[in-house]
């Protein structure tokens, strides 16, 4: 699904250049649930941003579902993001003046899906994350966990090839974190490919594979026995 070869990325900070990713080789198969771990500054978020086409790479190659991601202009990148990727952010990033259903329907709007179908699909995905009754509520009326579930529903709505979650539980307490992870696991069980960036070992342990980043290189890449989050959820 994802193929990365010899990926380099550096940022210019004034006169200094900060070499963040120093040659990453990395593959993800369809249906995997991968945790990308590392301390802050290890380059894990940068990697995810490049994978998510939110940022561009300096060197190396990136192929997503057989499509080489290279020299994308803004329009093309936007179309690919819409078609291939779903995002879940640490700070949820819901649009605050749109209610839950409208937020979930937004990627479908940019796909050109008709209004009625958008609403139906949005409700379907809200139901999947257990928030159908909250469809008409604004983000400000939802708890953190609920917001993240709406964000997950939104990421799913576009039916992406890969779901990318950047510290999805970073702003949540443990209990809520496990609930969200339970949801992510269930989505993965349904066959979706998911990448989770986290620095919490217990969250990483709930994935099927852990990639450890340190100072811009992969130091460890191992498959693990998944801990089911449902064990912690009543």
């Amino acid at each position: 699904m994802i193929e990365i070869k010899n990926l380099h990325k550096s940022y210019k900070m004034g006169s200094n250049t900060l070499h963040v990713l120093k040659g990453i080789n990395f593959n993800v198969e369809a249906g995997e649930l991968v945790a990308i771990m590392g301390s802050s500054g290890s380059g894990k978020s940068t990697l995810l941003n490049i994978l998510g086409m939110l940022d561009v790479l300096d060197e190396g190659s990136y192929t997503l579902d057989g499509v080489p991601i290279i020299n994308l202009n803004e329009t093309k990148a936007a179309q690919y993001r819409n078609k291939f990727l779903g995002f879940v952010f640490q700070s949820f990033n819901l649009i605050n003046y749109k209610n839950a259903m409208e937020n979930v329907a937004l990627p479908l709007y940019y796909q050109g899906v008709g209004r009625k179908e958008r609403q139906e699909k949005a409700l379907k995905y809200l139901e999947q994350v257990g928030l159908k009754e909250w469809a008409g509520h604004l983000p400000s009326e939802l708890s953190g966990g609920q917001k993240q579930r709406v964000a997950i529903a939104r990421a799913l709505a576009a039916e992406p090839k890969v779901l990318m979650a950047d510290e999805p539980t970073g702003a949540l307490d443990s209990k809520t974190s496990y609930e969200v992870m339970d949801l992510i696991q269930k989505i993965n069980d349904a066959g979706n490919t998911i990448l989770v960036v986290t620095h919490e070992p217990d969250i990483a342990a709930m994935c099927k594979r852990i990639v450890h980043l340190k100072d811009g290189v992969i130091v460890e890449d191992k498959k693990v026995d998944q801990v089911r989050a449902s064990e912690y959820v009543q």
């Binding site: 803004e74 329009t75 940019y110």
Partner: peptide
């Protein structure tokens, strides 16, 4: 700006 960033992440083209 933030909202537009979210929209772009969700697939809004610059034209949109």
């Amino acid at each position: 700006t933030k909202e537009l960033g979210i929209r772009k992440a969700l697939g809004a083209t610059p034209k949109a």
